[in-house]
Amino acid sequence: MAKIIVMTSGKGGVGKTTSSAAFAVGLAKRGHRTVVIDFDVGLRNLDIVMGCERRVVYDLVNVLSGDATLRQALIRDKRFDNLSILAASQTRDKDALEVEPIGKLLDELRKDFDYIICDSPAGIEKGAVAALYYADEAIIVTNPEISSVRDSDRILGILSSKSRRAEKGEEPVKEHLLVTRYDPHRVERGEMLSVEDVQEILAIPLLGVIPESEAVLRASNIGQPVILDEASAPAQAYEDAVGRFLGETIEHRFVKPVRRGFFARLMGRTA
């Protein structure tokens, strides 16, 4: 049975799209048929991060309003043939999203895919609710910073009251915490919340910690999801997170500050 995963946060700019792309590739790499959908109607950027922005003909709103079929709108990823992308519309706005047509769309997608990732827009209004409505599982992307944590708490409240599972009284959406842009050195200096602080406030299971890194910007610039930059720390952290999502037990890396040796400091090397 296909699983619908929503990548959400409440707060903007914390790494939902980066994480959606990373997870989509991570799952596809492991052999699962995956589709990732951009729900940020009007401000689309999943296509940029996935590197397919020059191949978008039809988008989510076209499919929902019947102007195009799914087959016409889905973009096959060039690197993995079990991975597809459904871009958002750039010209419409979120009012074009209605719950029933989205349900039908997801039913169709369920036939051909194992995992459906919904990249949510920021906020708690129509677009964000549309993205989370049909979710089976939710990954709450949170920066280790008080506003982001507050907004994540809010979106958790919305998940437990406005999702379809909540409305029908079914088993609740399974929640996962993904801490992004983590810098253990700043945590040590007391400038940043620690993973434990975030977990204490949000009280949901920790899926992964993705370290702050320049690799994310580089990846977005070249349209290659950061998980494919295998030497980089975020790539490894995302791989771990995908593994944990699929049930593996993997120790959390990148949560402790790295002690650089004398020579490493001399040569300007990072670990």
């Binding site: 507050r150 708490d153 809010r154 958790l156 409240g157 919305i158 009251s161 204490e200 406030i201 009280a203």
Partner: peptide
């Protein structure tokens, strides 16, 4: 969760889980 409002009308209220800021 933040943004939630709970009203125990005519009674006491007991909560055994964290009460988030903004609720």
């Amino acid at each position: 969760r933040s943004g939630t409002r709970i009203y125990a009308e005519g009674s006491d209220l007991v909560v055994t889980a964290p009460v988030g800021a903004g609720s």
